[in-house]
Nucleic acid binder design. Structure first.
Lengths: 253, 253
DNA sequence: ATCTATTTGTACGTATGTATT
DNA sequence: AAATACATACGTACAAATAGA
C-alpha cells in the first residue's frame, strides 16, 4: 500500500498530484502490471488520510495519463492500465499543438524513418497483413475524379503506412511513424490538405506502393528501402506547397 | 464560455472527462493561447451546472495533460498552459513503460535521425551554443578512471546530443531525439548502464564529437552528417551488449 | 508588516448511479 | 428481482495561498 503519510517534502505540489505520484511509484515498486487492482477509494482515503475528493482528483490525474482505468459496481475499482497508442498519441499531440509543426518537418523524419521501417519488414509480414495491404491499395485503384474522392484516397494511402508501422517490432519506430501518419491524416480530413486530382501523381504513388509490396513479399530489404525512399522523396515534393500551420485542434484520444 | 448543457450524447464518459473535453474544444474555438485565462471555478460550476468536485476533477485532467495551470489567490484561477517538453516526454514515457523498448530499438532511430539533425545544424549554430557544446566536450576531456566517472561522462556526452537536439528548428525532430537521449540518460543513471572504462572507446567517442563540432562550425552539412553517422554506428555497437529491458520506472516530469 | 479580499484547495456527509450476484 | 459493493456526483463549510491596500 502507499505510504501512510508523506512527511510533506514537497509542499509545492498539490495533494492530488502528490498522491498520484505516490501511487505511480508504488505501482512500480510492487511491479504491478496492466489489469492489476489498485486499492479501493475507501482504502486510499484511509491510507493517505485524505478526503474523498482529494483521492478522486488523484485518480483522475492517473486516468488522464492513461495509467489507470476505473470501473463502478461490485468487483469494480481502479486498475493499472496500459496507455494505448491513441492515448499516447493524443497526449503528445497536445505538445505539438503549441509548436508550429509543418508538413516539411514531418517529412524530414518520414524520409529517413519510413525506408528504415520498410527494410526491417521485408520478408517479415504474414499473409493476412499482406492481404490487408493489398486491399488498401485496391481502394484507390482508379484515379480520383472529385476532390472528395481524392481526399479519401489520400487518407487510405496514409492508412497503408499506418498498417506497415503497426507491424514493426520496434515500438518506438512504430509509434513515431504512426504518429506522423495520423497527423497527416487529420490534416487531410480537417484542413482539406490534399492535392488537386492529378492522374500522373496518382499513378506514381500507386506504383510505388505496389512495387514496395512486392519487395516486402519477396523479402528484399534493400529494395524495399530504396523504393520507400523514392516514394517519400516524391511525396515530400508533392506536399511542398502545403505549408499551412498545423494542428488547429487537439487530437482525439 | 463552454456550452451550458450537453445533450448527453455520450453517456459513456464520466462528467469530468466530458467537461475537460468541452473546455479543450472551447479553448480551440476561442483561439486561446498559453497564458490566457479560463473561467473561474465558480463560473464553470454555474455554466456546466455541476458540482464543485466534478469541475475540479475536470481541471485536474487538463492539468495532468499539461494544458492548464492553476493558481490560488486573487488574480488566480486556471490558465491555458503550453505542455513543455519535459511533461510531454513524461507522458509519452508512460506509454513506453509498458512496451519493451530496447537499446537496439532506440539506436535504430538515432542512427538515421542524428545524422539528419547534424546536417541541418551545420553552420546554423550561434557562438554561445558552440561554446556550450565545447564546454560539454571538455567535461570529459580525460579518460575516466572509475565506473562512477565513466557514468558521469556518458551522461555528459548524451547531454551533448540533447543540446544539439534543442537547436533544431524542427520541433518533431528536436523532441524525438531529446526523448531518446533522455531515456538513455535515465538508464545510465538508474540502471548502471554504461560500459566499463575503456580508453580506446573513450578516445573514439571524444574524437567523433570534436570532429563533428568542427564540421558544424565550418558549416559543412555533408561532413557533419557522415561524422554523426559514423559516431552512431560505433555507439550502437558499443551499446549492443546492453540488451536489458528498459524503463523500470515512470519518467519524471 | 498586517490586514483584507479573492480564488483555489481540502474535508466530509449524503445521495445517486451502476454493475455483479 | 433484490441485495450488495463499489464508484460517481452534490453541497456546504472551512483552510490555505496570494495580491493589494
Amino acid at each position: 500500500m502507499p505510504p501512510v503519510s508523506t512527511p510533506s517534502p514537497e509542499p509545492k505540489l498539490s495533494r492530488p498530484v502528490r498522491v498520484a505520484e505516490a501511487i505511480k511509484t508504488w505501482v512500480v515498486e510492487q511491479g504491478l502490471k496492466a489489469g492489476d487492482r489498485l486499492p479501493s477509494e475507501a482504502e486510499l482515503i484511509e491510507r493517505f488520510g485524505m478526503a474523498k475528493g482529494t483521492i478522486r482528483e488523484a485518480m483522475r490525474i492517473l486516468e488522464a495519463q492513461g495509467l489507470v482505468k476505473t470501473r463502478t459496481g461490485p468487483g469494480g475499482g481502479s486498475f493499472v492500465h496500459e496507455p494505448g497508442q491513441d492515448r499516447a498519441r493524443a497526449l503528445l499531440g497536445n505538445y505539438f499543438y503549441f509548436k508550429d509543426l509543418t508538413i516539411t518537418d514531418i517529412y524530414e523524419l518520414r524520409r529517413v524513418l519510413e525506408p528504415e521501417l520498410a527494410a526491417s519488414l521485408a520478408g517479415q509480414l504474414s499473409a493476412e497483413v499482406l492481404a490487408e495491404l493489398e486491399a488498401t491499395i485496391a481502394s484507390y485503384d482508379s484515379p480520383a475524379t472529385t476532390l472528395e474522392e481524392e481526399r479519401e484516397q489520400h487518407v487510405a494511402s496514409l492508412r497503408f503506412h499506418a498498417l506497415l508501422a503497426a507491424q514493426s517490432k520496434n515500438p518506438l519506430l512504430s509509434f513515431t511513424i504512426d504518429f506522423m501518419v495520423k497527423i497527416l491524416s487529420d490534416l487531410t480530413v480537417y484542413k482539406e490538405l490534399y492535392a488537386p486530382p492529378n492522374v500522373e501523381l496518382w499513378r506514381q504513388g500507386r506504383d510505388f506502393q505496389r512495387r514496395l509490396l512486392a519487395a516486402l513479399r519477396s523479402g528484399d530489404p534493400e529494395k524495399a528501402r530504396s523504393i520507400m525512399a523514392a516514394h517519400m522523396e516524391s511525396a515530400q515534393k508533392l506536399m511542398q506547397g502545403q505549408e499551412a500551420q498545423m494542428l488547429r485542434r487537439f487530437m482525439a484520444g
